[in-house]
Structure formats: C-alpha cells, structure tokens
Write a protein that binds this DNA or RNA. Sequence first.
DNA 1: GTAACGTACAACCACATGGTTGTAGGAAGC
DNA 2: GCTTCCTACAACCATGTGGTTGTACGTTAC
Lengths: 115, 115
Amino acid sequence: MVVGSISEDEVDRLFRALADATRRDIVARVLVAEYSVSGLAELYDMSFAAVQKHVAVLERASLVTKEKRGREQIVRGEMDGVQNARRLLDDYERIWRRRVDRITDILAEDAEDEH
Amino acid sequence: MVVGSISEDEVDRLFRALADATRRDIVARVLVAEYSVSGLAELYDMSFAAVQKHVAVLERASLVTKEKRGREQIVRGEMDGVQNARRLLDDYERIWRRRVDRITDILAEDAEDEH
DNA sequence: GTAACGTACAACCACATGGTTGTAGGAAGC
DNA sequence: GCTTCCTACAACCATGTGGTTGTACGTTAC
C-alpha cells in the first residue's frame, strides 16, 4: 500500500462521502471557488440543514475544510483528500498489473518448455 | 468530464461499493486470482450469505464479474470499473489544477500592473 | 437595541445497508 | 439413487443515511 498512513475507517469515510451526487458536486465547486455553507445551500433543491450535513460528511472525509469568516463559514476543497482516494485506486491498478505481468512470465516459461 | 458514458447512479454505486473494507479486500484478491464465492466466504468472519451480498454489490458496481463454472461461481476483478473510479478522481484533480493555474495567471497580471 | 442573517444541532421519519438464519434448487461425487 | 456442496434468495433485525422541521445562538446591519 502506498498510502499507509490512512486507516480503513478513513478510507470508508472517503469513498462513502464520494458516493453521493450532491456531495460530488459540492467538492467540484469548492475546488474551483470559495462558498459559504448558505451559498452552497442556494444551489440545491433541499433544505439548508441537508446541505450542512453533506458538508459535514465531506469534512469528516477530509475532502473539504471549513473556516469561520465573520458570521459565515467558508468551505474549501481539500485536494489531499481527493489525491488519497486516487492513490488507493492506483494501488488496485498496480496489484492488477503485477498479476498480468506474472501471467505473462508464466506463459513465457511455458513457451520455453515447449522445445 | 472524461468519463461521459457513466451515469451519476453508476458513480454512486461505484464509490458506495468501495466504501467497505471487506469489499475492498475482495476486489484486491480477485484482481490477483480467481475465487469462487464460497472460497471468498472462507476468508472472512461472517456468513456465506453476507459475503454473497458483498459480491453482488461489487457486481452491480461493475468492479467484479461472475462466471458459472460447474456448480461454482467464479469471481473475477473487473479492472475497467476501478479505472472508471480513478478517472473520475482525475477529473477533480484537473478541475483543481485549472483553478491553481488561473490564480497563478491573475497573480502574474497583478505583478505586471505593479510597474 | 432589534431585526435579519448564517450557522449549529436535536428530533423525527422513510428507507437503505450489513448482518443474520432458513429454505430451496442445481451440480458433482459416490 | 442419495448425499454433499455451492449458490440463490427471502425474511428478519439493528443501525446508518438523507431528508425534513424547529429551536437556539453568535454576528452583522440598521
């Protein structure tokens, strides 16, 4: 594993947080620009409290951070969280490639056995 | 978006499927070698039915495929599914980099305004 | 000071999820 | 044939999730 510092629970939270279209949209938006929680809430056809919960889920997954500014709470995208998730999937791809290489090797040995 | 052919529901299923440690372990294993469902069930401290459900979740997320062989059902890792997930995260990184580039441009313009 | 705004949080509801046990059916072994 | 193995699926239960409304509190504006 490349990302050894991240616990299974954290990975659970990470992927769980990404498994909702509204939350993915929030992440995409706050990676581009800053939004207050209420600013985000205006964008979706649901209550403020619902959006607030989504932001909380993303925050627990380290995909966004909140910073108090006056009476507003500014939400920013946390690229590290996204990269962690991406690296985990890279690990799977690496595992798979190793397998493919191994099979290729075996086939090569078999070919040598032929003669 | 790079992966335009994949629906929001499919993305939901994809990340949802990856948001469980047992399921991630199953994916990692079946990417390396073939397992029957009962072969997988032996590995975990839970009922056969529970493992069967996990496999079903992974199958619906296109992360594994099942193939009947005799009385067994062989589970194989589906690398395309993993790559789809990874590409989605690449999109976020791309969004973020565009933003960083844009900010860098603005800063450069400001620097020119200085003199 | 007071009204309006932005946020936090609790309580509640419907529904999905992760687990269990039990039942049933097809394939392999004897 | 009969038994055993592997699988599928239904029913059930506890818990979590995504949504709602209502209440409370700090901050800004007037």
